[in-house]
Simulated assay, not measured.
Amino acid sequence: MFTPPYPIMTPRLVLRPFTEADLDDLHAFHSLPEVTRYLYWDARTREETKAALDRKIACASLGEDGDVLSVAAALAGGGPVIGDLTLFLRSREHRQGEIGFVFNPAYQGRGLATEAAREILRIGFEGLGLHRVHGNCDARNTASARLMERLGMRKEAHLVENEFFAGAWSDELVYAMLAREWHAGAASA
């Protein structure tokens, strides 16, 4: 079982497991239709956010294929939770992971999502020893695509009309990074 060395401090953020005290902060952005527009769930009621938070609290470590690590990104100095990050362990044998992220739009445009997501990649490559981490997004979700590009992930695929999503066919983008690319980027940073 792998548990990251919490708390993880960045210049402006604290990454840590979710707690029950995070309900209001999480609901502040999980309840926004513009946040969930390209996600597999709709804007959540407070009760739905509470149920999601309970699942996130239970996902504080990784061990087996299919396990999920849920990480809260809070502003340093006791600020609110502004981000919800996920690392999926897709295959231990093939050392494959997947990254996901959802952020409060009130804090967009400051590089905070990039700062937090970079640490999730670090957990994957340096903590878990993954070989490859990928991330997917709806092709219309340009903010997520740009974030993955800022992280140094390369676009591997543009899948055309591969999912029937929210009543229409949608395209999906797949981005990925290999461990050697992570280490080369970390060395040059």
Rank of each mutant, 00 (worst) to 15 (best):
S61N: 14
L62I: 04
L62D: 08
G63A: 13
G63D: 11
E64H: 13
E64W: 08
D67Q: 04
V68E: 10
V68S: 03
V68I: 15
L69A: 01
S70T: 12
S70N: 14
V71H: 01
V71Q: 03
V71L: 07
A73G: 13
A74C: 12
P80H: 07
V81N: 01
F88K: 14
R90G: 02
R92W: 08
H94G: 00
R95N: 07
R95S: 15
R95L: 15
E98W: 07
E98V: 04
E98M: 14
I99V: 15
F101A: 05
F103D: 02
A106K: 09
A106H: 11
Q108E: 13
Q108G: 07
G109H: 10
G109Y: 06
G109R: 09
R110V: 09
R110W: 05
E115P: 04
A117Y: 01
A117F: 00
E119A: 10
E119V: 05
I120Y: 03
I120Q: 01
L121F: 02
L130H: 06
L130T: 08
L130Y: 08
H131M: 14
V133G: 05
G135I: 04
N136D: 11
N136I: 14
A139I: 03
T142V: 14
A143V: 00
S144I: 00
S144A: 02
A145P: 09
L147P: 00
L147H: 08
M148A: 03
E149V: 09
E149D: 11
E149Y: 02
L151Q: 01
K155E: 10
H158E: 07
L159I: 10
E161R: 15
N162E: 14
N162H: 10
F164P: 11
F165D: 03
F165G: 08
S170L: 00
E172L: 09
L173E: 01
